[in-house]
Structures are given as C-alpha cells and as structure tokens.
C-alpha cells in the first residue's frame, strides 16, 4: 500500500473523531475544539496529497495555510459569540440554548 493511503486513513479517522465530538458534546467550547480537530484532519489530507501526488506541486500545502488562517478567524468569532451568549444566558450547554423553542 502506498504511503499516501496511510496518511489519508489517519486523516479520515481524526475527522470522524471530530465529527463524533461535534455530535455528542454539550459544551459549546468543546464543540469548537472538535471542529478544530476536523479542520486539522483535512489539513493532514491536503498536505499528504500535495506531498505524494505528482502534479499538485505544493498547492495542497498552500491551501492548508489558508485553512489555518481561516480557522483562526473562525475560532475568534465563534468564541466571541459563545461569550456574548454566556453573558445573556449564563450557560454554555447547547441544550439550554432554547429561546426559539415554541
């Protein structure tokens, strides 16, 4: 089996762990952390493909840099929303954000 597939399998497993965390955790901050895990998994896949596939020539590496930048922006805004929400509701548990429930 080619080296690339090992790295891609690692990325898939990390992605699924992150997705599982997003589905099951209650704490919003942990959900954000699991989102970061998913983004990291995608980055591993991009860098691995860029490393082993002829013709990509570093584009995957470049894209992972863009993704890291956007992840930083995402985390800033996301946690600002969490803190603003916490100020109003005094909670970070997802199942207690139920104002819109009729």
């Amino acid at each position: 089996m080619n080296a690339l597939y090992w790295w891609l399998t690692l990325a898939v497993l990390l992605f699924c762990i992150g997705a599982f965390g997003v589905l099951v955790r209650r704490n919003v901050i942990v959900v954000v952390m699991c989102l970061e895990l998913m983004l990291n998994a995608v980055n591993i896949a991009l860098v691995a493909i860029s490393n082993f596939r002829a013709g990509a020539l570093g584009a995957g590496t470049l894209f992972s840099l863009f993704i890291i930048t956007l992840a930083a922006a995402e985390v800033t805004v996301g946690l600002a929303i969490v803190i603003a929400n916490y100020r109003n509701r005094r909670t970070v548990q997802t199942d207690q954000y139920d104002e819109l429930k009729g």
């Binding site: 089996m1 080619n2 080296a3 690339l4 597939y5 891609l8 399998t9 898939v12 860098v47 493909i49 860029s50 490393n51 082993f52 596939r53 002829a54 013709g55 990509a56 020539l57 570093g58 590496t61």
Partner: peptide, 15 residues
C-alpha cells in the same frame, strides 16, 4: 480513500 484513484502517486516526497 484507500480504493480511490488519486492519479499518479509515488513514494517520493514532492512538497
């Protein structure tokens, strides 16, 4: 992922 045809891949590091 393992069965996908991702084109020409080698064991050489190309980054």
């Amino acid at each position: 992922v393992v069965t996908a045809d991702v084109g020409q891949i080698g064991d050489k590091a190309l980054n």
